[in-house]
Simulated scan of single mutants.
Amino acid sequence: MMSSLNSTIMFPSSFILIGIPGLEDLHFWIAAPFCVFYITALLGNVAIVAIITSTSSLHEPMFIFLSILAFNDVFLCTSIVPKMLGIFWFNFREISFDACLAQMFFIHAFTTIESGILLAMAFDRYVAICNPLRYTSILTTNLIAKVGMMLLVRATVLVAPLLFLIKQFSLYKTSVISHSYCEHMAVVKLLEADTRINSAYGLFVAFSTLGLDVIVISLSYVMIFRAIFRLSSKAAHLKAFNTCTTHICVFLMFYSLAFFSFLSHRYGKNIPSYIHMILSDLYLLIPPTLNPVVYGVKTKQIRDRVLMLISSYET
């Protein structure tokens, strides 16, 4: 129940999501490419999961991690796009307090899991190239299951406190969120209180997941490239490098968008607010959309399987 006290709001029962401030007149048209991205992400990632799970020759660690990534991407984009389309096309801007916190949890949790999967995939490439004789003995199904569980636990343990830190406050400056979805800092800025702990913990979560993962992935690729350049033949160089290029493309795409959005949101005071919002939206939508395209084009086994299915369908 809302009640006003000295121009503040106590215990808001719901929030109003603005969408993209400054571009309200263009919401209808902005929603169209977002919808296309979302449908492409759903179809592409579901296809990746279906192809890998139904093809016994693809039941290898690299492809298992890829299927987990695709599965996570489906939930990541679904946590934001349906509500965004409701805002842009139907003006459904209201979201309950609990639904807002739930969306916040899922967005940050799935993003954290995404980063962890990319780290696991980098480890997979490191073992495959730097220690190939022990690849099957190290990357067992049991280890992959444990890694998946650890990524889920890490995301839950780190992200859940964000919600509890927000719920301890009762006074809000406004119930209007200048964003397309319930992002942590967007909600924290509404609080009529000292939010330094919230901001500090948000930074801690970002740098202990995305930041730490980037460092470890980068170090792993330094060792991978050192191992590649020690190979005797150019053909071996090319073959080893080709096994990494797809993951490198996905790695650069995800983290460049993530850090550009993160830093511009906090420190880009001269950047228009609608640029911040669009970057935040694309950061969560572009990687799930392009990941299956990149892997489908660059991974020969998946590409061959897709072509086989198409040819059998045509006949």
Score class of each variant (00 low, 15 high):
142 N>E: 14
144 I>A: 06
144 I>Q: 11
145 A>R: 14
147 V>I: 15
148 G>H: 06
149 M>G: 07
149 M>E: 08
150 M>A: 15
151 L>D: 01
152 L>C: 09
152 L>I: 09
153 V>P: 05
156 T>L: 14
157 V>G: 06
158 L>E: 06
160 A>C: 11
160 A>T: 15
162 L>S: 02
163 L>T: 09
163 L>N: 07
165 L>K: 09
166 I>Q: 11
166 I>L: 15
167 K>Y: 11
167 K>I: 09
168 Q>L: 11
169 F>P: 04
170 S>N: 15
170 S>G: 10
172 Y>E: 05
173 K>N: 15
173 K>I: 09
173 K>H: 14
174 T>M: 06
175 S>P: 02
175 S>K: 10
176 V>E: 08
177 I>D: 01
177 I>T: 02
179 H>E: 06
182 C>V: 02
186 A>D: 04
186 A>M: 05
187 V>C: 03
187 V>K: 00
187 V>G: 00
192 E>T: 03
194 D>P: 05
195 T>G: 03
195 T>W: 03
195 T>S: 08
195 T>Q: 04
198 N>Y: 00
198 N>P: 03
200 A>H: 06
201 Y>F: 14
203 L>P: 00
204 F>R: 02
204 F>D: 01
206 A>Q: 02
206 A>I: 02
207 F>M: 03
207 F>D: 00
207 F>G: 00
209 T>A: 07
209 T>H: 06
210 L>P: 00
210 L>E: 01
212 L>Q: 09
213 D>L: 00
214 V>M: 11
214 V>T: 13
215 I>A: 15
215 I>G: 07
216 V>D: 08
217 I>T: 01
217 I>N: 01
218 S>C: 13
219 L>H: 10
219 L>W: 13
220 S>D: 07
221 Y>D: 10
221 Y>H: 13
221 Y>G: 06
221 Y>L: 08
225 F>D: 04
225 F>Q: 11
225 F>G: 04
226 R>G: 09
226 R>Y: 15
228 I>Y: 04
229 F>H: 14
230 R>L: 14
233 S>H: 10
233 S>R: 12
234 K>N: 14
235 A>P: 01
237 H>A: 07
237 H>Y: 14
237 H>M: 09
239 K>S: 15
239 K>W: 05
240 A>Y: 01
244 C>R: 00
244 C>S: 10
